[in-house]
Computed example of a mutant assay.
Amino acid sequence: MDHGSAQQSLTKLAVSATLHCLTGCAIGEVLGMVIGTALGWSNFATVVLSVVLAFVFGYSLTIRPVLKSGVALSVAIGVAFAADTVSIAVMEIIDNAVMLLVPGAMEAGLANWLFWASLAFSLAVAFVVTVPVNRWLISRGKGHAVVHQYHGGDHEGHHQH
């Protein structure tokens, strides 16, 4: 594999890892924002709930396939922490910062397009910022790279049972 295709493959892997992270983060983020907004919580409490749920769902999406490979729960949890912590943290910092910076987004309410447009925009910005972070981590054998030995399919055949 030449240097250009190796770099392209690394970028493709980082995009895949970031999409995986985005899925868990988005589920937790949306759920947290909806619950906090519906209950009339402060911005701080809503953001805390969103972050906690993003980590829970993000880790869960990694733990499940790792468990299917036959490892113990404690190993799967360790793999998820190693694979996803930095990615989820960066994504949550960016998407919550964007939500807080969009004027009126947090106060708009669930029936207002501004809330939903801001949330979608914040997740898109977080994705764009997190791809290079994941690329850097994977290139050093860290982050999502640690999960590849436990599940295959879209990860270049690193399937092992």
Rank of each mutant, 00 (worst) to 15 (best):
V90H: 00
S139N: 14
F57S: 12
M91K: 06
V102G: 08
M99Y: 13
V56W: 00
S139L: 05
A145Q: 11
A82V: 02
E107F: 05
I63S: 07
V66D: 07
S122G: 01
A89P: 00
G141P: 00
N112M: 02
Q149D: 15
N96H: 12
K68W: 13
F57E: 03
A54F: 13
A89T: 13
V47C: 01
E92A: 11
V51A: 14
G141D: 05
M91Q: 13
I138A: 04
A120D: 02
I93P: 03
G70H: 01
E92N: 15
G40C: 07
K68Q: 14
A82M: 12
A108P: 09
A72H: 13
N112Q: 08
W41P: 02
W113Q: 14
L101T: 05
L123D: 01
F115L: 11
L119I: 09
H148M: 15
N112S: 09
A105D: 06
D95C: 02
L114E: 03
S87I: 11
V66C: 11
A126N: 05
P132C: 06
L49N: 08
Q149S: 13
S118E: 01
A111I: 05
I138Q: 00
S87D: 03
G78P: 02
D84Q: 14
T130N: 13
S122K: 08
P103R: 06
V147F: 12
V146T: 13
G70M: 06
L61I: 12
W136V: 12
S139D: 11
G141S: 06
V146P: 09
T46K: 02
G152M: 02
A145W: 07
V56D: 10
N96R: 04
A83K: 04
V86T: 15
L53R: 01
G109I: 00
S69N: 08
V146N: 08
A89V: 12
P103A: 08
V71P: 05
A82E: 03
I94A: 06
S69F: 10
V147C: 04
A111Y: 07
I77S: 04
V75P: 00
N43E: 14
A45H: 15
S50Q: 05
A83G: 10
V48C: 11
I93H: 02
V146G: 07
T130K: 07
A124P: 06
A111F: 11
F121P: 01
D84F: 02
G58Q: 10
V147R: 13
R64K: 08
G141K: 11
V47R: 05
L39A: 14
N112P: 02
A80G: 13
T130C: 09
V125I: 15
P65N: 04
A117C: 03
N96D: 13
T85C: 09
N134K: 02
V79H: 04
S50I: 07
V86S: 05
V129S: 09
V98E: 05
S50Y: 06
H151M: 13
V56P: 03
G153Q: 06
A89Y: 00
D95V: 11
V71A: 11
W41E: 09
T46F: 03
V47S: 02
A126M: 03
W41I: 01
Y150W: 03
V131A: 09
A108K: 05
A108R: 03
M99D: 04
